[in-house]
Design a protein around this nucleic acid. Sequence first.
DNA 1: GAGTGGTCTAGACCACGAA
DNA 2: TCGTGGTCTAGACCACTCG
Lengths: 250, 250
Amino acid sequence: MSSKSPLYRKVAGDLRTAIAAGEYGSGARLPAEDELARRYGVSRGTVRQALASLRADGLVTSRRGARRVVLGGAPRLQSFGELRSFARWARSLGEEPGGRTVAVDPAEATEEEANHLQLPPGAGVFKVMRVRTLSGVPVMVERSTYPERIGRLVAAMDVDEVSHSRQLELHGVLFTDAHHTIDVASADADDAKLLGCGAGHALLRERRRSTDPAGTPVEWSEDRYLPGTVAFTVHNSVASSALGRQLGEE
Amino acid sequence: MSSKSPLYRKVAGDLRTAIAAGEYGSGARLPAEDELARRYGVSRGTVRQALASLRADGLVTSRRGARRVVLGGAPRLQSFGELRSFARWARSLGEEPGGRTVAVDPAEATEEEANHLQLPPGAGVFKVMRVRTLSGVPVMVERSTYPERIGRLVAAMDVDEVSHSRQLELHGVLFTDAHHTIDVASADADDAKLLGCGAGHALLRERRRSTDPAGTPVEWSEDRYLPGTVAFTVHNSVASSALGRQLGEE
DNA sequence: GAGTGGTCTAGACCACGAA
DNA sequence: TCGTGGTCTAGACCACTCG
């Protein structure tokens, strides 16, 4: 039982489990911070850190003067609570992820690409197109642009490699932050062929810029999903929650 | 200058301003926590609270051992960093929001509605349909379902009232948490007429369940946007960031 | 090895909610 | 009024990064 993970994780994990198990029905009040601190033999600050994480995930409310209340947890689909690769996300839903690389092209970065990857205009990049499947069924076309160093690693991978991000991790390339933009796009000829829909068919589009722990951009990607196969979910709250997430800016 | 807002807000605000003003170029390193604490005459904990908020918004990285790095901030579109009403969001972009109520109907909650609003099956609700405009151009159809008490307040409002949420605030009804699901839907006859598109046209759909500070559901809404008029943006990071946001769960 | 962020403690005072 | 969460302090030790 040697635990190398922080205490607040243990506390948060226990509370998540208890909530998931229905020990606190929807609308029930959580124990007070002091009570939890006593129960776990930790300081109140540590308990608050655990609770902040539940709050960020939209599992509980919190306001001054009243105990925290358990929110009726809707089942999560593609939650943005934490950055996760397609493969890891699929597996967490009990689906079997797949992927096949359709094209790998060295190229010079367009102005937009150079901008997103913070490279000089015309710098060398690798463009990779992949079909992603869930249990064998094509659901998404992924077009990623990588800086040269990373692109080389991707280009060397098997075309049927399921998780590029896993492989890149093994080479010391980490994806730790991402900024996503979601809207609707129209299927082009490639999309239509790969997804088996008509050209011009509307697709759910997610564009993503991922960075490593040092803040260096490592990937610029555009994913197009067949409608009905996935949905994205996000939780939100007004300014001034526990431990000061989110500011407000008016 | 009597400030009733917390200290960490002041610190966070200053840092945001400095970053926005380009005082720390993209990739630059922020001052150390101790340095900021000394500079503002506050404790390190307070500085960390401020920095956690920047982290949550995707403005900076943070990892043990190295100074925080400023991320190249992409311009935000419809950011989910903080819960904001359509009207407030539009104004923050310099657009002029508008809205016209098309229909208000008392009804019995369907099973789905009762579920989302945590009401008994068949409870009385109000269903409200509205067209939302940006600078006079229709961009979205909003179908909201309210519990009876709140629905009555909405039903009593002027059909041209721009911000229902603002009015509800004045009546003591607060929206503090929301859970969003984003996908693609197809325009029905109402959508087509109100948005001026063809029936069957693909729309960007956001479904939302909002709750008040006590965790009581106050609104269940389905918004359908004309593609190209708005996009949603979200920021994300892997587990274990400053002040323990997000857990990970494997 | 020095600097830095991550975790944790043990206090304190205040603002707010509920009884 | 009393319990509760929000804010804040002043320390401490450790794990990690970087020169």
